[in-house]
Write a protein that binds this DNA or RNA. Structure first.
Lengths: 341, 341
DNA sequence: CACAACCCAGAGAGCGCTCTCTCAACCCCT
DNA sequence: AGGGGTTGAGAGAGCGCTCTCTGGGTTGTG
């Protein structure tokens, strides 16, 4: 194998024209075959296909999108700050779902990191015509600074955007229902002092999960006062748990709005010599990978993240192609029962 | 804000022609301004720029790449099996580095998941002319089934490819040196029975890290027999550690070829009532996020993964543009000393 | 002052493809 | 047997851009 990587390396590439010549037909006919139009003689089509194979022909994307005014590409926007937590399993998994779905379509997935410092650059890239639609993923953050573009370009968000939630297309996990189910598990087991470590109340997941907990404790006839707000981090979870315990009121269960905070709660609880689940049952949210490695293994809400990515991509493609599609999709979750409850 | 997301929504987009008309010059001149050619009257250029701003003009990518025979796009190939471990922080971080670098260039990042079942599809996509260069990321796996394409398309690999390592362009972490340094830390601290849990010997990182350990123990005049092979997983790390311990020979330190296996070693060691680092010192490799959350905090090798991604992208762009560039880049690592040693 | 040299702007030919329009061939019906 | 209808294939006009080539104006030189 020789390396001919210099840009001058001749890469012979077949064109429609060449195929047409070889097959002895017009360009139009080849084009019809390539886009498998029904209006073409099967026999002719055969010989065209042979020519295509012989020349190893692949349609030129640029030429095609030039005339079709469609790039067949979808762009994933990652904000610079999100990119710092690029390793966030949630994010990575969503992307996987998106890519998986798009692989079976004509669409190509682009990814850009939008620097918050020069949003203009991103904007002009998006509106430049080389992008058919936009996907925005931002986990807990309220980064939906792109919502305003959804008037000019098909856009789908992962999670309910903080602003524009009444018009934007998005797919989210049913946080409230999931939190309700999780808490339900606690009350149904006979726990009577069920606290929660909620997430920030300026983020939809934080809001919805707290609402779910509320619904469940109310339904069980319990008090709704045992709430402390954390920031979705381990440290904040530990602090919140300490605050809860410091109140002096009895607590026999806690629902943490994510696993990180649940992990923090673990250290706080066990640090005070209390046992999980005997003294306090704990339920988390996210089914992070470490949920099984903590001790006792954490009961938590599992969400279908790959599914979420797929659904986002599917919604976007529908939007682009003008097919009817639901504006909001809410994905069901499941509760994974382990040993902490 | 009204939603006009149906495909029929008129998206008025300025063309070169329109700019030319507004500025009262020819298309050629506008083109020159856009591509900031020096041969244009500054005054004229000014008025063209004003027109560009006024019309919010962005060059049409497709048209440009059609004539330039350059797509200005770079494709990241993720093999289907890799995508399962998409959440692999290594992978995610490399991608982040790549994206970060490309953001400041003219290039766009595409991502495809190549299904192993139909490699033809991927091949034709790559060779279809809409891709200027290819980036292949596969962590521990030997997935370099694309090496053969590097004759026809600029390609850069993350990590040394198993085959074609003498001609392929790649950037890797200096695994051997890093392993040497890590082990050195152990011997320098007076440990005299330094074992290793090596990675699979059919993967470059597995091979190189073992070689680094060898070099260090040899240099210290210690035996080279305390080797067990794992599979870079927690479970295999635990098993390997047990095998090591079962030998009956004294062991006062172990270098695990990655943090996952180090974590496995932790459970094995502590499960036998031995203390870390008093009885056995442990050094890992990767500086995974959980390295700080295990107890005691793990001393491990940190690699500059974002850097690796950036370097890959940089190398690829150089390759595409015909600039001179090193075929192989080896990135230095650092040892993060924590409490396990 | 004539002529060469130079510089900048415009004209125009495509890049590879799609798609409308046109036309030829053929079928069916009366 | 002739007209209308139908169907399949070709011709040709672009999509928006770049780039070579040409030409007019300006400057420099003998």
């Amino acid at each position: 194998m020789t390396m001919t990587q210099d840009a001058s390396g001749p890469r012979p590439v077949a064109t429609l024209e060449m195929v047409a010549a070889l097959a002895g037909v017009s360009r139009a006919t080849v084009s019809r075959v390539v886009n498998d139009s029904p209006r073409v003689d099967p026999e002719l089509a055969q010989s065209v296909k042979k020519a295509i194979l012989a020349l190893d022909y692949t349609p030129n994307r640029a030429a095609r999108s030039l005339v079709k005014r469609r790039a067949n590409s979808v762009t994933l926007i990652v904000s610079e700050s999100t990119s710092k937590v690029f390793a966030d399993p949630f994010f990575a998994t969503v992307v996987q779902g998106i890519a998986l779905f798009l692989t079976d379509t004509e669409y190509t997935l682009n990814m850009i990191i939008s620097s918050e410092s020069k949003p203009e650059k991103t904007r002009s890239f998006l509106l430049g015509g080389s992008v058919d639609g936009v996907l925005v993923v931002s986990h807990h953050s309220g980064d939906h600074s792109w919502t305003h573009l959804s008037g000019s370009l098909p856009m789908v968000f992962a999670g309910r955007p903080l602003v524009g939630a009444t018009e934007a297309y998005f797919v989210e996990v049913d946080n409230e229902q999931a939190a309700y189910n999780a808490t339900r598990q606690l009350t149904a087991n006979g726990r009577t002092s069920v606290a929660t470590i909620a997430g920030p109340q300026d983020m939809p997941p934080g809001i919805d999960r707290l609402a779910g907990w509320r619904a469940a404790v109310r339904e069980a006839g319990l008090g709704e006062g045992l709430v402390e707000i954390g920031e979705f981090t381990v440290a904040s979870g530990a602090q919140a748990m300490h605050r809860l315990l410091d109140r002096g009121a009895p607590i026999d269960a806690v629902f943490a709005a994510n696993d990180q905070m649940a992990a923090g709660a673990y250290t706080a609880i066990q640090g005070r010599g209390l046992r999980i689940p005997e003294d306090i049952a704990v339920v988390g949210f996210d089914d992070d990978s470490f949920a099984t490695s903590v001790s006792p293994a954490l009961t938590t809400v599992h969400h279908p993240i790959v599914e979420l990515g797929k659904k986002m991509a599917e919604t976007l493609v529908n939007l682009i192609e003008g097919n009817p599609t639901d504006r909001v999709t809410r994905l069901p979750t499941s509760l994974v029962i382990r040993d902490s409850v």
